[in-house]
Simulated scan of single mutants.
Amino acid sequence: MEAGWSIRKAGVEDLDELIRLRLALLRSTREVERFEDEEALVAKTRRYLERAIPEGRFHAWVAEAEGRLVASSGIMPFERPPVPGNMAGLEMHILNMYTEPGWRGRGIARALFTELMRFSREQGAGRIWLHATDEGRPLYESVGFKPNPTALEWTPPEGA
Rank of each mutant, 00 (worst) to 15 (best):
E55P: 01
P157S: 11
I53F: 10
F113Y: 13
A132F: 03
S120D: 06
I53P: 04
G126P: 02
Y140G: 06
L90E: 03
R127E: 13
R127M: 15
S72G: 08
V12I: 12
L26P: 00
P149G: 12
G124D: 07
F35W: 05
E13V: 01
E158Y: 06
V12K: 10
I53W: 06
L41W: 06
Y48W: 14
P81S: 13
Q123S: 11
T99L: 08
P149D: 15
E122N: 11
A88N: 14
S142V: 10
S120H: 01
T29I: 15
L116G: 00
T155W: 04
R34A: 13
E33D: 14
E115Q: 15
E79Y: 08
K44P: 00
Y48G: 09
M87C: 03
A88S: 15
I94K: 03
V12A: 09
P157K: 15
G136P: 02
K44I: 04
W129H: 15
P156L: 15
E100G: 02
W61L: 12
S6L: 14
E39Q: 14
M87K: 14
L23Q: 03
P149W: 09
L116V: 10
A24C: 13
R57A: 12
E141V: 00
V12P: 02
R80E: 08
P101G: 04
A24H: 11
P54T: 08
R51I: 07
L95C: 02
W61D: 07
